[in-house]
Write a protein that binds this DNA or RNA. Structure first.
Lengths: 190, 190
DNA sequence: TTCTACCTACCTACTGACAGGTTGCTTACA
DNA sequence: TGTAAGCAACCTGTCAGTAGGTAGGTAGAA
């Protein structure tokens, strides 16, 4: 009877480490200490660090897809959906102490296996498609102002969110996230 | 009379490495091979990696300040200045093969000495102040449309630029930079 | 002029620490 | 009795950094 599923505990620890320290910034030794098992035992669950990175990104992608579905179910308007997504990025930034896994992994691109690079592409496509639909909806229901090209808005918004996380991270100051996002927020009708 | 100044060659190599591999992704061994001296000799120029990171950021900040001054001298309108700055970020992205040093360093924040963190803050403040003035100018001379809050525009634009570099880097595809930036570009009057 | 002293720039050879990863053994439990 | 999960011990390679030395140049004083 393990306290929590060790594999999940390892994924949690690794995700936190990757998002704060970067992929090249954490080691199996760090995870071992954090989770409370020996370094060698990690290899039982994740034979290699490449392997671990794939599992990490896989879970991240799945979780994000669920999140988007949930937002869709809970929020009827485009504006409400966009507000909710911003909130996820804001919370994910953790007051400038973390980055989105996708951002962190993109910065250490050359250390990652091809599978992860594919997953990153899929992750980005998924969000951009979802946001394109969200901007379209916001355009037609009047809940987001000033939209003319939903697909371009979506691409810009994703860059803005990731850039905002980076801004907050750069100085470990959550206000910088809000500052960067403010103008977009003003376009959303309450 | 040395071929090229070794110290400069080391800074060039380190900057390239940091911007493609991240701060934790390159080693003195990499630099040694690239520059053509022995690993130990690097310590003659930069006693520690922390020391090197400071020199790197110092030069980067100085170069960027010069760039901004040059743009100011060459371009009379706010729109032209913004276009020029975007171009620097686009070129700096190197078709999705690099990131801004500031972005790359922010992602490995915890591996860097306090001096570099200060420099990063100063770097960001400098650009945001410069862009705030640029948006103000563009607002008054009519070369940038739709501006109501120049300071917020500047904060959003910096996040957008850095996010756009990240987007291009994520898939090593320069089109993603242009895509993310397009809507801002459309606000600039030729 | 030549000796001494000191310099920069680089070298070989090494250190202790730590990286990811492997082997083979021991539990626990179904 | 089989299997999953964990362990200690160890491997090889690499990390940043150090010790100590050399080649060649410069500057000053006798």
């Amino acid at each position: 009877m393990p306290t929590t599923d060790t594999k999940t505990a390892l994924l949690n620890s690794a995700e936190h480490a990757a998002r704060t320290l970067g992929f090249d910034g954490f080691s199996y030794a760090d995870l071992a200490e954090d989770v409370g098992i020996r370094k060698a035992s990690i290899h039982h669950h994740f034979p290699s660090k490449a392997n671990l990175s794939v599992a990490l990104m896989q879970r991240y992608l799945a979780t994000f897809q669920e999140t988007c579905s949930k937002i869709e179910a809970d929020c009827p308007t485009g504006g409400a959906r966009l507000t909710e997504l911003i909130e996820r990025y804001r919370v994910g930034s953790d007051d400038g102490k973390r980055l989105c896994l996708c951002v962190s992994f993109s910065a250490s691109r050359d250390s990652l296996p091809p599978d992860v690079l594919d997953q990153i592409s899929r992750f980005r496509s998924m969000i951009i498609e979802w946001m394109t639909e969200t901007f379209k909806l916001g355009q037609s229901d009047g809940s987001i102002t000033g939209t003319t090209a939903p697909a371009l808005e979506a691409a810009a918004a994703l860059s803005l969110f990731e850039g905002a996380q980076l801004a907050a991270r750069a100085e470990e100051n959550p206000a910088l996230f809000d500052n960067a996002i403010e103008l977009l927020r003003q376009r959303i009708r309450a």
